[in-house]
């Protein structure tokens, strides 16, 4: 179980992005995190993956624990090796100038065991298109292929927990659907998934539980299936609240509503 307790993160010593966020990720579930741009979703993942230093951010309060052990301040490589936590960054984090096969090999750098070859075959089973393109530079692959490669690379690190940052970014709806099916399959194979998404509807459909983040805090949580029907989520994230047109006066309600719970 991964738990985040009252986490506060500040960039460049002054920009406060996470203002005391607390959440829990249970083993084996798909946890969906939705929120508007700038809500702090990516920062949250960076903090968990141990990469916040790299972006000149600091955890000034709170703690991140895996099975009760604090991982705060550990290096991303250590977190990956010790706890099997892999972070797939947003915007298709592949190495453009390496071939697809080299990308997969590079992602297995932290491992020394002899199963790299067989694991690569497993990745090719999940994503057959990658096998056909394996000698092509990743930069020339299509957006969908790149995102699949990114997830394939994450698989090469043998993750127990996979943090996915907006995998559907810039992908056609059909590709997104396929991708989410694969994410579901990965989850069934035993990988805990944390899915950060703007595409709230698709994400909530495959998720077990979900959190809504706003201004660096959790404002709502519950079963994913229930949140789809939650009136506020429908209005702000699914764009399908009450059907009648609202006046601007009513739109302000959103700002006035400081407390959600």
């Amino acid at each position: 179980m991964l738990s985040i307790e009252n986490l506060r993160v500040v960039y460049h010593d002054v920009i406060s992005v996470l203002n005391g966020i607390s959440l829990e990720i249970k083993d084996g579930e798909i946890l969906v995190i939705i929120g508007a741009n700038g809500a702090g979703k990516t920062t949250l993942l960076r903090a968990v993956a141990g990469m916040i230093d790299f972006y000149d951010g600091d955890i000034i309060e709170g703690d991140i624990k895996i099975q009760g052990v604090s991982i705060k301040g550990l290096d991303s490589t250590d977190i990956m090796k010790r706890y099997g936590l892999t972070y797939v960054m947003e915007d298709r984090p592949v190495f453009d100038y390496l071939t697809i096969e080299e990308n997969l090999k590079a992602a297995s750098y932290s491992r020394w065991d002899k199963h790299v070859k067989t694991d690569m075959e497993t990745v090719f089973e999940y994503f057959p298109t990658l096998k056909l393109l394996k000698n092509r530079r990743a930069g020339y692959a299509s957006g969908g292929e790149q995102q699949m490669l990114a997830i394939g690379m994450a698989l090469m690190t043998k993750p127990k927990i996979m943090l996915l940052d907006e995998p559907s970014l810039g992908l056609a709806p059909l590709i997104t659907e396929e991708l989410f099916r694969i994410i579901q399959k990965l989850n069934e194979s035993g990988i805990t998934i944390v899915l950060v998404e703007q595409n709230a509807h698709a994400a909530l459909n495959i998720g077990n539980r979900a959190y809504v983040v706003e201004l660096g805090r959790i404002v709502l949580d519950g079963q994913a299936k229930e949140l789809i029907h939650n009136e506020d989520v429908r209005e702000f994230y699914l764009g399908a609240g009450e059907t009648k047109r609202k006046s601007y006066k009513d739109a302000k309600r959103y700002k006035r509503r400081k407390r959600w719970l």
Binding site: A49, M51, F54, Y55, S76, T77, M80, K81, T86, Y87, V88, M89, P93, V94, F95, D96, Y97, L98, A106, A107, Y109, S110, M153, A154, M156, T157
Partner: peptide
């Protein structure tokens, strides 16, 4: 190519 991506994949 990219330090951040490399770190995220355990390099």
């Amino acid at each position: 190519e990219d330090q951040a991506k490399a770190m995220a994949f355990g390099i």
